[in-house]
Structure formats: structure tokens, C-alpha cells
């Protein structure tokens, strides 16, 4: 392994090389082992301060970053949109500069605007980790998805991965597409044409509007959460119709190969994008994703936060 990590920030997977992605995954192997020790804590980031700055709410991702930071012995502060001065009219840049003035070493940012993490990374000495920006990227989610596939199948190159659902508004889909293609997987996007437009083919993926044609050849299906159905009505056929056409029902799951992995970034809508029996089946690796998310985030915090700045 000749790659060395030199980045202070993790903004997206689009800018990373395949070697860098593999380096993060290999580093995560070491941190996953820490979770099995009697004392699940190492001093790697002792004395560092991490700020979880979540302008958009997310309990799951924030908690995962928080626990990852604890296990690396960093100190953690959580700031949410409502509790921050952003609600009082302060600009993002001023808020961030205030955090830096408090000697925050690592800033984990969730923001509704694409490019917000990059904006701050260019202006701050602190490490900036993108925890999801608009419909742009969610790199740690894609990394934990890649880690889970690699752990279960031993490789990523050559696998057929179907990503199903709201692709248009999904940063998880975008980061997954970049990561999977760089590591040599074939990617098929599946959903209604309003949510999976043909433009995505330019990225080097296949687009399909018929889930039943895709499931039989898939090695992995990654189901995305339907979350904008209420806000963006014009794109959705309606929840019931969506389930009928694109939900992974018990019946439809029979089309899958017996070793096909079923993934979901959570929180799952049982009965909408996935049936309960399918979500709890042996093929489902949804809870492995959660466990692996911790290891992957420890690796990212260690790599970005551990280098001298």
C-alpha cells in the first residue's frame, strides 16, 4: 500500500482517487477492530476538539460522528441550526470563524446548500468533513456502503449495484455513484423517470425505470429513503403507487439472487421502499451499515484530523 493521506478535508468522493478510497477503507478495518476491544477507545485524537455543526437535522449521522470522535478521545460539541447564531442572522462564514477562534480542530458540517463544506474548507485551517450538503454529496455514507459491500463480498470491482429510489435529490446516491464507479462496480439507477432522469447516464451509469428487469442480475441493491414525497409532489406518483412500482416487496425480493445484499441508509420506511420481512431478512445488511459507519467515520476523523496543519 503506497498511498498516503494528505487531505485535511473530506468534501466528497468525486475528488478522491480509487487509491485514496481504498486507503480509507483499509484504515477503517483497523478501527473496526477497536470496537471489539474491552476498552473501545484509543487516544489517537486526544486533545482535539470536534464540532458537529448540523444546520440540517440528522440524529443518525450526528450520533455516529459523535461516537466516532469519543472513541478517538476527541472532545465534542454539538451545534444544531436552531441553537446556533445562524438563527440570529449570522453568516455561515462568521459562525465557522467563531468556532475556529475557539480552536475547533475538526468541523463536521451538515448543510442544506451544496458546496457549503467546500466554502468553509477553503477559508478555515480546521479540517472540514462533509456530513451531507444539499443534493450534492454525503461521502461518509457512501464510504460505509462501500465498506459493507467489500466486507460481505470481498471486493467491489465487477459487482452489479442497483441504487433504487429518489436519485435526483439524493446526495447518498451521488457519492455512491462516484465511489462505486471508481472502484470498478457497474451501477444501475432505478426509479420513476421524474426522479431518475436519463442525464445520469453521462456519469457512466445505466438508468432503468423497470425494477423487475434489474433485480435478477443485481449483486447489491441499495434502497434510498423516500423523503421528499410531501415537499415535491410533482415528482412522485404517490406513496402507494411508488411502493407498487418500485418498492422492494416480499414478492419482488424473490427475483433477487440468493446472495444479493440489501442495503438502506436509514431510517427505513417499512412498507414504502422496503417491506418489513425484506428489511429483516438474512440478505439485509442494514445494521452492518450502521456498525461500519462508526469505523469508517473514525478512519476519516483520524486521517483528516491527525495530520499536522
Amino acid at each position: 500500500m503506497t498511498t498516503r493521506w494528505t487531505r485535511k478535508d473530506l468534501l466528497g468522493l468525486r475528488e478522491l482517487s480509487a487509491d485514496e478510497i481504498n486507503f480509507i477503507l483499509e484504515t477503517a478495518d483497523a478501527f473496526k477492530q477497536v470496537g471489539t476491544r474491552e476498552i473501545k477507545k484509543v487516544p489517537a485524537l486526544q486533545g482535539k476538539t470536534l464540532v458537529n455543526f448540523f444546520v440540517e437535522p440528522s440524529t443518525r449521522t450526528r450520533t455516529s460522528f459523535e461516537l466516532a470522535a469519543f472513541r478517538l478521545s476527541a472532545d465534542v460539541i454539538n451545534i444544531s441550526a436552531t441553537s446556533s447564531s445562524l438563527a440570529k442572522g449570522e453568516t455561515l462564514k462568521d459562525t465557522a470563524r467563531n468556532l475556529e477562534a475557539l480552536h475547533a480542530d475538526i468541523l463536521v458540517l451538515r448543510h442544506s446548500s451544496a458546496g457549503a463544506p467546500q466554502f468553509l474548507a477553503q477559508r478555515l485551517k480546521s479540517s472540514v468533513i462533509n456530513a451531507g450538503d444539499g443534493a450534492h454529496e454525503h461521502p461518509t455514507q457512501a464510504l460505509l456502503d462501500l465498506y459493507t459491500i467489500r466486507e460481505r463480498r470481498g471486493k467491489i470491482a465487477g459487482l452489479d449495484v442497483a441504487i433504487i429510489g429518489d436519485i435526483l435529490f439524493s446526495r447518498v446516491a451521488r457519492s455512491n455513484i462516484f465511489g462505486l464507479l471508481k472502484l470498478g462496480a457497474r451501477v444501475t439507477l432505478v426509479g420513476p423517470s421524474t426522479l431518475v432522469p436519463r442525464e445520469f447516464e453521462k456519469l457512466g451509469v445505466e438508468v432503468s425505470h423497470k425494477i423487475d428487469n434489474v433485480l435478477p442480475k443485481a449483486d447489491v441493491v441499495n434502497l434510498l429513503r423516500i423523503q421528499h414525497a410531501r415537499q415535491r409532489k410533482e415528482y412522485f406518483p404517490g406513496i402507494g403507487e411508488y411502493s407498487r412500482l418500485f418498492g422492494l416487496t416480499k414478492e419482488r425480493a424473490k427475483l433477487l439472487k440468493s446472495d444479493c445484499l440489501i442495503m438502506h441508509p436509514g431510517p427505513i420506511n417499512r412498507g414504502v421502499e422496503i417491506d418489513s420481512e425484506v428489511a429483516d431478512s438474512l440478505q439485509s445488511v442494514i445494521l452492518d451499515q450502521v456498525t461500519n459507519g462508526l469505523a469508517v467515520r473514525m478512519a476519516v476523523l483520524y486521517l483528516c484530523g491527525g495530520i499536522a496543519t
Binding site: M1, R4, W5, T6, T27, D29, A30, F31, K32, Q33, A44, L45, Q46, G47, K48, A299, Y302, L303, G305, G306, I307, A308
Partner: peptide, 14 residues
């Protein structure tokens, strides 16, 4: 950690 431009590679303990 934090004083070197290059981090040592971490490997899994066993």
C-alpha cells in the same frame, strides 16, 4: 499524532 505531516498507517490489531 497531529505533529507529523504524514500519518503512520494503521492496521488491525489481533
Amino acid at each position: 499524532v497531529g505533529t507529523r505531516a504524514e500519518l503512520p498507517v494503521v492496521r488491525a490489531s489481533k
